[in-house]
Amino acid sequence: MSRKLSYEHIDKLIDECARQSNRFFTDGVSEDESCFELFRRAIVHRNQVAWEAIYNQYHKLVRYWIQHCSSAYFTHEDDIQSLVNATFAKFWHSIPPEKFDNFKSLRALLGYLKLCAGSATTDRIRRQKYQTLLTDLEEVRTLPSDDDIEQSSLDKAAREQFWAYIQTQLKDEDEWFVIYHTFVLGWKPRDIQKEFPQRFPDVKDVYRVKRNVLDRLRRSEGMRRWME
């Protein structure tokens, strides 16, 4: 009888996956079939019980990946838990049933789960900095939701065109440095001066360059079209 058939009952499958995972810790060996089958049922059949079992089985592993690498950015328990959840949500949405066959082993699935953890963590780091930038401009008071983040909601091509246009209006490297670090990376004038002290010996130099560019841009015809 095939092993798949013997896992007819999901409870049995869940127990076997947990047993094999524990076996790995004690003996250093395990059979991946039951855990792989659990993933298959969760993804291909959209089986909620299987999905919850996967979360229970692997959330500590995801937490370990995130906590180990992102302590410089996130220390609060709420942040870490939210990132663990975001990782599983990303994994779930990224693999439609028809794509499950692309994964040939449990190792491949867990590798992809880790990729989702990395992407979710990077996305959150950017979103936090973006929030700070907008808050400084009094644009928002709350963390933008995943849908709000401009990287996904604004048309990428339009953003690139806008950046291309801005660059045509810059007269020298100093102006490019100030505008790039101010708007693309979200840095403050003092951060720019600290990073490039030879180019900008005083923070006032950054303010001066920024003002010149802003003055020019807000008066330019091309910019008015963008503003409309």
Binding site: E139, Q151, F162, V184
Partner: peptide
């Protein structure tokens, strides 16, 4: 000036960077 700054912040943030 403020509208331009807000637009620039919204359009340009990490525009040149690879996505997460």
């Amino acid at each position: 000036l403020r509208s331009f700054t807000a637009l620039a912040a919204r359009y340009l943030y990490r525009v040149t960077c690879p996505s997460p």
